[in-house]
Every structure is written in C-alpha cells, then in structure tokens.
Design a protein around this nucleic acid. Structure first.
Lengths: 139, 139
DNA sequence: TTGAACTGTACAAAATAAAATTACAGTATG
DNA sequence: CATACTGTAATTTTATTTTGTACAGTTCAA
C-alpha cells in the first residue's frame, strides 16, 4: 500500500483541528511533511467523495465538508486505498496443466479480497473526530 | 506487502498436493513461476516456523512437516508477512509544535497494528488443505 | 482589468522497494 | 569423489512510490 490513506487521514484531522478555516495545500503539506502537489492530488479524491469542500483562487483551499464525527476511516479507506493491500505480483502460470499452478492465483484473489473487506470493516469504528481526540490525548 | 505470503501459501499447497514427495526448489519455482533462490529464501522461513522439513544434498528438497489441515493461513501470515501491511512512510514531523503534526504518526501506528490483527485473525479460518480443496474445485 | 494567491492536473525525475539473477560454500548420496 | 541438492549473500534489474516542476484555470481585490 502506498501512504495516500495516511495522508488523507492526517489531512482530514488537520482540517478538523482548525474548524471553519480554509487551509491551503501548502499549509497542509507542511503539517504532513510532504509537498503541496501530493496533498492536492489526495484532496481531489476526498473532494470527489464529498468529505471536503475546496475553493480555487485567492484565499482558496480546503475545509471539511462534513461533521468530523460522520467521516469514518472505513469511508476514507474505501475512497482512497481499496485494492492496494493485495500485491500485484501474480503467482503460477495459467497455461500449466497442474491446477495448483493455474488456479492458486484466483483462490488467493478471493482470500485477499475477503481479508481486505474485514480490514476495511474494522476501520469503520474510527472517525476523524476520534482520531483527533486520540492525538490530543497524546496516545 | 511484498508477495512472500502468496509464494509461501502456493508452495505449501503444492507440497500438500504431492504428499510424501520431496520437491526441489526448482520444481516449486517452476510451479509458482519464480526463481529457485527466492523459493529457498521463503522455505527457510517456513522451515524455521516448523511448517516443513527440508533436506540438503542429492535427492533433497522440501516436504510438509505438518498435516495440511493444521497449517492455517493466519500462521503463515504471522511467520512471513507480519508488519508489512503498514506503509513505511512517516507522516508529520515530531519536531513541530502542532500536535496533529507530531502525534498523528503514533495514532496511525496503533490503528494499522489493530487493523492488521483483524486481517491476520481473518486468515486463521483458511488452511493449506482448504485452499487446496478450493483450487481443485476450480473456484 | 490586472496581478497575486490559490487549485487541478500532468509529466518527469529521484528515491526506494521488490524481484530476479548469479555465485558459491556446505551437505547428502551413490 | 562427482553429482544434485539447500542455504545464503551480493548484485543487478525492474517496478513502485515519492518528490519536484510546470502551467492552465479560478477567484478576489485593488
């Protein structure tokens, strides 16, 4: 998995930390410790999923579009990282006669998909608000 | 995650498919579609975890060390892939005064660890035997 | 109505991680 | 003692991730 999910959560928490405030990609990038272009790419996806409002032009930037208690990490995961837990590498060879060589990949696909479902489900218990609370508590 | 877990499962299933037979790293590599050195590296870990027996020298190779119904994918995951679901990239900057910048990483570490626990737990329901069965059934 | 401060997006470059390859010492067998 | 194997390390190649650069489009305010 790449770290877009981490960046998305961090950015949303940062916006929840500054309610009613428009934050620029540069300010968020500084807080997250990455570059503004990457933040803007991640934020584009989050905007398309309705988690935030963006504004172009001078005094533009990003703001939460929903109550931080309504945004779960499961939602964020689904929007930005679904499918990235499974490695791309393919095992076996579909042309071989041996069923172990030709069919293991499809069984692994099934197992990875189900496992990722439980992973995503687990994340529904956390919200942007609850993560911010943990951060403030210094856990 | 790299694909060592996939390779481990595939190799164990292949051995279960040929009970009582010593398979060489070359034979397994051919079935899995990778190179023998990589198979030997993965098999070393599986041997250390007690899943299989290895024999060096002529007519040597690999054999299951346990009943394939006893080896769960959860066990295999723990042995070979624990910790690889979380990205290495670190968010924020511990030196910044803002708690969101300095503490988000540790909260994410906690969430990733718990989420991986549920991922691994899920895998305990599958065994090498049950995977082989699915493969034979052509799912 | 113009220029300054932004986003949105694409593309290229650099850094990192994963996979394949090569090599060779060690071990068992016949 | 030659052959067929494992065990392991080092190197090269390839793929992925991250960063950096560029620029068109948008908004605001003087």
């Amino acid at each position: 998995m790449n770290s877009n999910f981490t960046i998305a959560v961090h950015s949303l928490v940062y916006l929840a930390y500054l309610p009613g405030h428009m934050a620029s990609s540069e300010a968020i990038a500084h807080n997250v410790a990455t570059n503004p272009a990457r933040i803007r790419k991640v934020m584009s996806i989050l905007r398309n999923s309705g988690f935030l409002k963006t504004k172009e032009g001078i005094r533009g930037g990003y703001m939460l579009g929903e109550d931080p208690e309504k945004i779960t990490l499961g939602d964020v995961y689904e929007a930005i990282a679904r499918g990235e837990l499974q490695p791309n590498w393919q095992t076996g060879d579909p042309e071989q006669g041996c069923p172990v060589s030709s069919n293991t990949q499809s069984v692994m696909d099934y197992i990875f998909k189900e496992a990722e479902d439980t992973y995503a489900s687990f994340l529904y218990q956390f919200t942007v608000a609850s993560v911010l609370q943990k951060i403030k508590a210094g856990v």
